[in-house]
Write a protein that binds this DNA or RNA. Structure first.
Ligand code: FES
Ligand code: FES
Lengths: 159, 159
DNA sequence: AGATACTGTACCGTTTTAGTCCTGTATATG
DNA sequence: CATATACAGGACTAAAACGGTACAGTATCT
């Protein structure tokens, strides 16, 4: 089905929730407001923190916030963060793994064309494009709105 | 990983083999020349025959051939034939299936943007782009070459 | 010190996938 | 017409991936 993990699906739900809320939200908070079970939310957030999509703050009043302006985050990044590099088949990936036909395989690396195409199209869909409210708002207004709310969040998190 | 099935991977290998060979090839023949195990080849070919990518002829001297000019076949078609509709998440597919968050889901149908992007990029990669020889041949020459070899095949199969 | 909240990892049950096999049907050939 | 070839369809099993959970550990605030 060429489908994305369920975990990635949830991740977008949670991220959108984070997008519209306060700067720093705890995993429990996000779980409650998004409907995704807490352990799952925790798992997702942990994973997203390993990349430069989210940042975390420990301790009381801690939580998660965007590591940088969310309007610059693409779906390609989110998907790659949750499921590893976008490689449609093992033979074409960076990992060097191949199927068992490598020795006589007549198409060494031709899947690359497919990978590049898919990767490119995913890079052009931004996370904020997934936010339902975006439909009813002026794009520029939305961006500045989000930037205003979240840029300080990243700074605060870094402090 | 956003990966395609191994079966789809094999399918492209087998299709490329069919692309360069005679008009009608048996499953056993294709298995031998591609290195993919026979039962698997058979499964793939059967599946591809359900769509209008391949055509089959039963009986002695039977086999498989392209149902139409192969240079018009896109990777999107091949992938969809093997794994069903390209729907990155269940919530966005045509099938009407959704994850369990449907009732309070804040992003009804926003994955559609992702699906359209991915589907579009896959539609632009043609099957013959996967053929290694294509690299060393003039595109026009290749197309006419393939057309000359395979257009009669379809007619013969239909007879 | 104690409560809160993230970190990392390991575990297990479920689902999906890959691969195999068997029975049936259609066609060419002698 | 008998027989060999070759596709059609579906059932079945083993293996891998995924989803979800649990737990022990660490950092921070009050
Ligand atoms: S090595 Fe697997 S398709 Fe090429
Ligand atoms: S119903 Fe599943 S993400 Fe919307």
């Amino acid at each position: 089905m060429l489908r994305v993990n369920k975990l990635t699906d949830y991740a977008v739900v949670v991220l959108c929730d984070l997008l519209r809320g306060q700067a720093l939200r705890s995993a429990a908070d996000l779980s409650a407001s998004s409907g995704v079970p807490l352990p799952t939310v925790a798992k997702i957030l942990k994973q997203l923190t390993k990349t430069d999509i989210l940042q975390s703050v420990r301790g009381v009043n801690g939580g998660y916030g965007f590591a940088r302006a969310p309007q610059n985050i693409s779906m390609a990044e989110v998907i790659e963060a949750l499921e590893g590099p976008i490689a449609v088949t093992g033979c074409a990936g960076d990992s060097g793994e191949c199927c068992e036909l490598t020795d006589q395989c007549p198409m060494s690396g031709h899947w690359t064309a497919v990978n590049v195409a898919v990767r490119g199209s995913l890079a052009e869909v931004r996370l904020i494009d997934m936010l339902p409210e975006a439909r009813f708002m002026d794009p520029d207004d939305l961006s500045s709105n989000i930037a205003a709310r979240h840029a300080p969040a990243a700074q605060q998190a870094q402090a």
